[in-house]
């Protein structure tokens, strides 16, 4: 995953300082044979009672950075103690990514500050050493709704913490960015800072293309937040400009289309018939010459 969680980086650094020798005692000894892969963990709360955790494993060699594929990653959640809840095991794909969708209904453990530590662990193998990555977040939720006052269209956002599955305190003063999904990525259309009630709004820009029916999905995101990690909410509305799937102006008979312009076909036919008619006339004369010879042979002139 591209965006490395800043929190988790700091967390890991601190963690390493505290218990450095305990976790990676091997690191110095065998740089020759085994290597410690690099693992990153990305957390995304979809506000839809699901959390997407994605881990990415790579290894640095002289030739460059290689993705570690088919590596079994274990995802866990814990409240900070020794106890941790097993979430699932996923093998990394060809690009070294392992993704898991966690349904938050299963009961995610939280500590006193309502924080959860998510962990992605790689157990190590014949050639690679074990490694892990953690991220600590507080569960939150964003809701997106729409309102129209006269001609002004507004996207309304509200965000709040989630405590034991129910809405809790509103998120205040957090930056929320609003996007629309596009072919490859999300296009930013505005941003707002939440007020003390955890609410904010963004004006809906004109001329946004939706699907063929004009449906458009709006995403609101809190990104790489120190407390909440990545949280996103989304909602759809038919405010988009319907996308033209078959544009009328795409021409049918052009120089470059499979079918030729009519004038070309007509010209070609006229020219070819003209020429070949003359050829046939000449050949016809030859046939008549031969016929005449046969006639002469049958009835020789006196």
């Amino acid at each position: 995953m591209k965006s490395v969680n800043l929190t988790s980086c700091i967390f890991i650094l601190v963690f390493l300082l505290v218990i450095s020798s305990a976790v990676f005692p091997q690191e110095k000894q065998d740089s020759s044979s085994s290597k410690t892969p690099n693992i990153t963990l990305n957390y995304l709360n979809t506000s839809n009672d699901t959390i997407i955790l994605s881990a990415s494993v790579s290894i640095k060699r002289e030739l460059g950075v290689f993705a570690l594929q088919n590596a079994e990653i274990t995802f866990e959640a814990s409240a900070g103690g020794n106890e941790s809840k097993f979430l699932g095991k996923v093998k990394t794909d060809v690009e070294g990514n392992a993704v898991i969708k966690v349904v938050s209904k299963i009961g995610i453990p939280t500590d006193k500050e309502r924080k959860t530590i998510f962990t992605a662990k790689f157990p190590g193998g014949a050639r690679y050493l074990a490694c892990f990555e953690k991220t600590s977040v507080r569960l939150a939720k964003i809701l997106v709704s729409f309102a129209q006052e006269d001609t002004v269209r507004v996207i309304k956002i509200s965000a709040f913490q989630v405590e034991n599955g129910v809405p809790g305190k509103p998120l205040t003063k957090e930056k929320v960015t609003v996007y629309v999904p596009r072919l490859f990525t999300l296009l930013k259309i505005g941003e707002t800072t939440l007020d003390e009630n955890g609410k904010g709004q963004v004006e809906y820009p004109e001329k946004l293309v939706g699907d063929s029916l004009g449906n458009i999905t709006i995403y609101a995101k809190i990104e790489e937040n120190d407390i909440y990690g990545n949280v996103q909410g989304k909602s759809s509305i038919t405010w988009g400009i319907p996308k033209q799937y078959f544009l009328a102006e795409r021409p049918a008979r052009q120089l470059w289309t499979p079918v030729a312009p009519i004038w070309m076909i007509v010209t070609l036919i006229i020219m070819l018939t003209g020429v070949w008619a003359h050829y046939l006339y000449a050949v016809f004369q030859l046939i008549m010459i031969k016929r005449h010879a046969q006639k002469l042979r049958n009835n020789p002139p006196l």
Partner: peptide
């Protein structure tokens, strides 16, 4: 497990041979 370059160092053929799906992430 195999290594593969981020930027698709390994050819797709080898990838296919070693098990197309062995490497594919199961979402």
């Amino acid at each position: 497990m195999e290594e593969s370059n981020d930027k698709k160092k390994k050819s797709r053929r080898e990838f296919l041979k070693k098990g197309f799906l062995a490497g594919a992430g199961v979402v």
